[in-house]
């Protein structure tokens, strides 16, 4: 057990897997010698050599395309897209290729591939360093999508992702890299070193994909969320005094519908929270699933709190970001409805 930041936990997961399995290779822009712009791969090239961890040309389509080729050869690539905002050139490779190889070849060719990318805002990164494109992946048949919210989960889920036989999109909320940010941008963030979820088991440890975690048990309303918003929701519950049951989904596909449904059947109310834009976001899927599975238990309309349907602005970052005040209001309204 060691106390780690999310960056260290992610690095540790790759380190463990590279040591265990020489088929694991890691590459991306600035990932090799320098160790990544967020330092997630620091030291891996020195430890495992230039053919196991290397820098690539700036071409996201090339990164994913070559990774697919390697995966079909039998390697287990775990590649980095520097920011999720830069994954679009790779989207064709992800959607038309990685996601469908197994299906279209009837299992003859498969694609055990992990694509890591930092997501989300809160760092004044403007529209090209802040996006949350998870719904663009969850909409695609054949992909799994993971969003960890703390160092413990990040390590266990990343190892599960690397061991998974299918392509996994691994979204890393960059605002959480160094501490659990709760949306109060005017207050200092407690570093992970002071947080028990930063106690990460050493060596090989797996958290299975598709298992949500109840981070706060409660009876008044169920909050479905993931990533940075897990902490924003916790702050909102604390500040409103509402006894919310907060569920950190951890993986969006496969989704832990059992945990979700059991909770909503108990509370009878549901608020969905994500940072991504509203329309056609993953929240729409969640709200529909809750409606389909829990309709006769619902006592209030399901509410969504999300980013607005605009590009992510620079100066108005905190007007855009669905912070604790907005989430809190939704909790109150849903409980009082």
């Amino acid at each position: 057990m060691a106390r780690m930041t999310m960056i260290e936990a992610i690095r540790d997961a790759m380190d463990v897997m590279m040591a265990r399995d020489e088929k694991v290779v890691v590459f991306g822009e600035d990932v090799g010698y320098f160790g990544g712009v967020f330092r997630c791969t620091a030291g891996l090239q020195q430890k495992y050599g230039k053919t196991r961890c290397f820098d690539t040309p700036i071409n996201e389509s090339g990164i994913v395309g070559t990774a697919i080729g390697m995966a079909t050869y039998g390697l287990r690539p775990c590649v980095e897209i520097q920011f999720a905002d830069y994954m679009y050139p790779a989207y064709d490779q992800i959607v038309s290729e990685a996601a469908r190889l197994r299906y279209r070849s009837n299992g003859e060719f498969t694609c055990p591939l992990v694509i890591r990318m930092p997501t989300g805002g809160g760092i004044f990164g403007g529209q090209t360093h802040s996006q949350s494109p998870e719904a663009l992946f969850t909409h695609v048949a054949g992909l799994k999508t993971v969003v960890p919210s703390n160092p413990y989960d990040a390590k266990g889920l990343l190892i599960a992702a690397i061991e998974d036989p299918d392509p996994v999109i691994f979204l890393e909320p960059k605002r959480l890299y160094n501490g659990p940010f709760d949306g109060h941008h005017d207050r200092p963030v407690t570093p992970w070193s002071k947080h028990e979820l930063a106690d990460v088991p050493s060596g090989h440890f797996v958290l299975p994909l598709g298992k949500a975690s109840i981070v706060r048990a409660g009876s008044a309303v169920t909050v479905l969320t993931y990533g940075t918003m897990v902490y924003v929701a916790q702050a909102a519950a604390a500040e409103t005094g509402i006894d919310a049951e907060i569920i950190d989904l951890r993986t969006l596909i496969p989704l832990d519908l059992d945990t979700i449904a059991a909770s909503v059947r108990k509370t009878g109310r549901c608020v969905v929270v994500h940072e991504a834009t509203l329309t056609s976001g993953f929240g729409a899927e969640l709200a529909t699933l809750v409606q389909e599975t829990c309709f006769f238990h619902l006592e209030a309309p399901i509410t969504r709190v999300t980013g607005w349907d605009t590009p992510y602005p620079h100066a108005q970052e905190w007007d855009y970001f669905p912070g604790p005040a907005r989430v809190g209001r939704a909790l109150v309204e849903t409980v009082e409805a």
Partner: peptide, 29 residues
């Protein structure tokens, strides 16, 4: 990104835009 920012605070610093000066709005991509 201030009150007179020609692109209204929407863009990261240095991502200028001026059609009149033959300068296409800069993308970060």
């Amino acid at each position: 990104s201030n009150s007179r920012d020609p692109v209204k605070g929407r863009q990261l610093p240095v991502m200028y835009s001026s059609k009149e000066h033959g300068f296409f709005t800069i993308s970060g991509n």
